[in-house]
Measured scan of single mutants.
Amino acid sequence: MMAYMNPGPHYSVNALALSGPSVDLMHQAVPYPSAPRKQRRERTTFTRSQLEELEALFAKTQYPDVYAREEVALKINLPESRVQVWFKNRRAKCRQQRQQQKQQQQPPGGQAKARPAKRKAGTSPRPSTDVCPDPLGISDSYSPPLPGPSGSPTTAVATVSIWSPASESPLPEAQRAGLVASGPSLTSAPYAMTYAPASAFCSSPSAYGSPSSYFSGLDPYLSPMVPQLGGPALSPLSGPSVGPSLAQSPTSLSGQSYGAYSPVDSLEFKDPTGTWKFTYNPMDPLDYKDQSAWKFQIL
């Protein structure tokens, strides 16, 4: 009977010793046993002879290597770790002494450095960015050149030099007046198309007034536009458009034309069986010896 009264063996659950049927240790109110408190290391007290050895090595170098620390530790009968900690504390003490010396050398008012006064946003004049500046400075420094007289040679050079070769001289006033084509001369031969040399188009003023001019072949195509416009036809070669000034309004060009419109200028042929003959000019830059190549039959 006494065997049943004795408590059973101890069981360990999660490293906790349980005594038989008792489960009081598993209750929430019972805390787990805490780790033992780490003991504080005792402070090391250095003797005068030990301090002399350490100070002598510190005077040589503030960062001794492990071999120098072990050698000193053997002399003063201390572990190497204590020597390492002593050098660490000695360097910190040396830095603190240097900072105190710097503070003593500075004057009393030198510690508080005078800061520059901050400028207020409204006091300083700042350039306004509302208006974009002129990058080319046209509004201040540029002045347009004065327009020359209508009959000045410089204007003629600016007008005619675009179309004339570089080897030719500017046309005088008398020749510029001949550039304007007359109405009857352009409409006299509506079906004849003559190819003149390129030099005649640039230099010869008579080429624009003769039936064999460069633009005589364009007349049949330009004249039928007159009834559609409801007024006189516009002429690209009329009046002052080739003269001194090219800047004319469309209203000033509306009254200039080749001449009176005639039914002869239409595109319809009077004789459907007729042929169109292209007159060959020996001055043509295209060297075609066979003139029969310039004739064709309209079917």
Rank of each mutant, 00 (worst) to 15 (best):
residue 147 P to K: 06
residue 9 P to V: 10
residue 13 V to F: 08
residue 137 G to P: 02
residue 230 G to D: 03
residue 169 S to K: 11
residue 246 L to Y: 05
residue 171 L to N: 09
residue 189 A to V: 11
residue 59 A to C: 02
residue 272 P to I: 10
residue 42 E to M: 05
residue 106 Q to H: 06
residue 17 A to F: 12
residue 91 R to H: 15
residue 51 L to Y: 08
residue 43 R to F: 13
residue 74 L to E: 06
residue 18 L to R: 01
residue 171 L to A: 08
residue 182 S to F: 12
residue 105 Q to H: 09
residue 120 K to T: 01
residue 31 P to M: 12
residue 99 Q to V: 05
residue 15 A to C: 12
residue 118 K to W: 01
residue 289 K to R: 06
residue 173 E to G: 11
residue 282 P to V: 14
residue 170 P to L: 06
residue 15 A to S: 04
residue 64 P to I: 14
residue 50 Q to W: 15
residue 168 E to N: 07
residue 265 D to M: 15
residue 31 P to G: 05
residue 87 F to N: 15
residue 266 S to D: 02
residue 90 R to D: 14
residue 61 T to N: 03
residue 130 D to Y: 12
residue 260 A to S: 08
residue 184 P to F: 13
residue 240 P to M: 13
residue 2 M to Q: 01
residue 122 G to Q: 04
residue 165 P to F: 11
residue 196 A to F: 15
residue 236 P to I: 13
residue 289 K to Y: 10
residue 280 Y to V: 10
residue 222 L to N: 01
residue 152 S to V: 02
residue 220 P to M: 15
residue 176 R to D: 03
residue 103 Q to V: 06
residue 84 Q to C: 07
residue 242 V to N: 03
residue 126 R to W: 02
residue 205 P to N: 01
residue 96 Q to I: 07
residue 101 Q to C: 05
residue 267 L to A: 00
residue 35 A to G: 03
residue 285 P to H: 03
residue 132 C to S: 06
residue 251 T to F: 13
residue 282 P to T: 03
residue 294 W to F: 01
residue 120 K to W: 01
residue 93 K to V: 14
residue 90 R to I: 14
residue 187 T to W: 13
residue 69 R to N: 15
residue 127 P to L: 09
residue 121 A to E: 01
residue 45 T to I: 10
residue 63 Y to H: 13
residue 228 Q to F: 15
residue 131 V to L: 05
residue 7 P to V: 13
residue 276 W to M: 00
residue 54 L to Y: 14
residue 78 L to G: 14
residue 269 F to Q: 00
residue 133 P to E: 02
residue 7 P to Y: 13
residue 258 Y to N: 02
residue 114 A to T: 02
residue 5 M to S: 00
residue 67 Y to D: 11
residue 253 L to N: 02
residue 257 S to K: 10
residue 128 S to Q: 03
residue 212 S to T: 05
residue 106 Q to G: 03
residue 10 H to W: 15
residue 287 D to W: 14
residue 204 S to T: 05
residue 277 K to C: 12
residue 129 T to R: 09
residue 208 Y to F: 08
residue 153 P to Y: 14
residue 68 A to C: 10
residue 77 N to G: 04
residue 195 Y to H: 00
residue 167 S to T: 09
residue 222 L to S: 00
residue 3 A to H: 03
residue 213 S to M: 12
residue 218 L to F: 09
residue 92 A to F: 11
residue 263 P to M: 11
residue 101 Q to L: 10
residue 148 G to R: 09
residue 3 A to E: 00
residue 158 A to K: 06
residue 30 V to K: 04
residue 46 F to W: 14
residue 210 S to I: 15
residue 288 Y to A: 04
residue 84 Q to W: 12
residue 143 S to D: 04
residue 206 S to A: 06
residue 219 D to P: 11
residue 96 Q to K: 12
residue 158 A to R: 07
residue 268 E to W: 14
residue 274 G to H: 02
residue 59 A to M: 09
residue 146 L to K: 11
residue 195 Y to W: 13
residue 59 A to Y: 01
residue 160 V to T: 00
residue 39 Q to C: 08
residue 196 A to S: 03
residue 6 N to H: 11
residue 126 R to P: 03
residue 187 T to S: 07
residue 141 S to F: 05
residue 105 Q to W: 05
residue 282 P to C: 11
residue 290 D to N: 15
residue 176 R to T: 03
residue 299 L to S: 01
residue 190 P to M: 15
residue 275 T to F: 03
residue 260 A to P: 05
residue 217 G to C: 10
residue 98 R to N: 05
residue 278 F to K: 01
residue 46 F to T: 15
residue 249 S to P: 04
residue 150 S to C: 04
residue 251 T to S: 07
residue 105 Q to G: 07
residue 226 V to S: 03
residue 161 S to Y: 12
residue 279 T to I: 14
residue 197 P to E: 07
residue 117 A to P: 05
residue 197 P to C: 11
residue 150 S to G: 07
residue 73 A to V: 15
residue 40 R to D: 13
residue 68 A to G: 10
residue 76 I to T: 07
residue 276 W to Q: 00
residue 89 N to V: 15
residue 51 L to G: 10
residue 194 T to A: 07
residue 232 P to Y: 15
residue 215 F to Y: 02
residue 193 M to N: 00
residue 201 F to Y: 03
residue 288 Y to R: 14
residue 167 S to H: 04
residue 79 P to Q: 02
residue 181 A to Y: 12
residue 153 P to V: 12
residue 110 G to N: 02
residue 209 G to T: 06
residue 146 L to C: 02
residue 187 T to Q: 07
residue 134 D to Y: 07
residue 222 L to T: 00
residue 44 T to P: 14
residue 51 L to M: 10
residue 201 F to K: 03
residue 212 S to N: 04
residue 85 V to H: 14
residue 226 V to K: 05
residue 162 I to F: 05
residue 262 S to C: 09
residue 57 L to R: 12
residue 164 S to I: 15
residue 144 P to Y: 01
residue 275 T to A: 03
residue 120 K to N: 02
residue 18 L to T: 01
residue 24 D to Y: 13
residue 53 E to H: 05
residue 263 P to R: 14
residue 290 D to Y: 15
residue 199 S to R: 10
residue 267 L to N: 00
residue 178 G to C: 07
residue 272 P to N: 04
residue 274 G to K: 05
residue 226 V to T: 04
residue 114 A to M: 08
residue 289 K to D: 02
residue 35 A to H: 07
residue 41 R to H: 14
residue 249 S to N: 06
residue 87 F to W: 14
residue 47 T to F: 11
residue 90 R to V: 13
residue 214 Y to G: 03
residue 228 Q to I: 13
residue 181 A to T: 07
residue 89 N to S: 15
residue 88 K to P: 15
residue 207 A to P: 06
residue 220 P to T: 06
residue 15 A to D: 00
residue 119 R to S: 03
residue 147 P to M: 03
residue 51 L to D: 14
residue 284 D to A: 14
residue 67 Y to A: 04
residue 108 P to G: 06
residue 159 T to I: 15
residue 38 K to F: 14
residue 91 R to Y: 15
residue 150 S to F: 11
residue 125 P to V: 08
residue 233 A to G: 03
residue 242 V to G: 03
